[in-house]
């Protein structure tokens, strides 16, 4: 492998690993945002889920 090829190959590896890191960071950030969101929603959730679901009965419409 020539120096130039080695350099290109190294560069490719570096860029691949940067992409991986970015992808990981993005999905980690996404998960963190989701955790935050779930915590916020915990505060407003229907208190008695079973009762709420049971009583949610509608007349059929159009």
């Amino acid at each position: 492998m020539s120096d130039r090829e080695r350099a290109q190959s190294r560069k490719r590896e570096e860029s691949e690993s940067t992409e991986e890191t970015e992808a990981r960071t993005e999905s980690e950030a996404d998960l963190e945002a989701l955790d935050d969101l779930l915590d916020e929603i915990d505060e407003v959730l229907e208190e008695n889920a079973e009762e709420f679901v049971k009583n949610y009965v509608q007349k059929g419409g159009e």
């Binding site: 989701l34 955790d35 969101l37 779930l38 929603i41 407003v44 959730l45 229907e46 889920a49 079973e50 709420f52 679901v53 949610y56």
Partner: peptide
Amino acid sequence: KRLLDGYRERDGLAWTDSKLRALALQ
């Protein structure tokens, strides 16, 4: 679905759980 998946994962809920159904209505 993203919301429901988040709850399923975090709280280990089955699709039939009332909590998920309540969330879906809410």
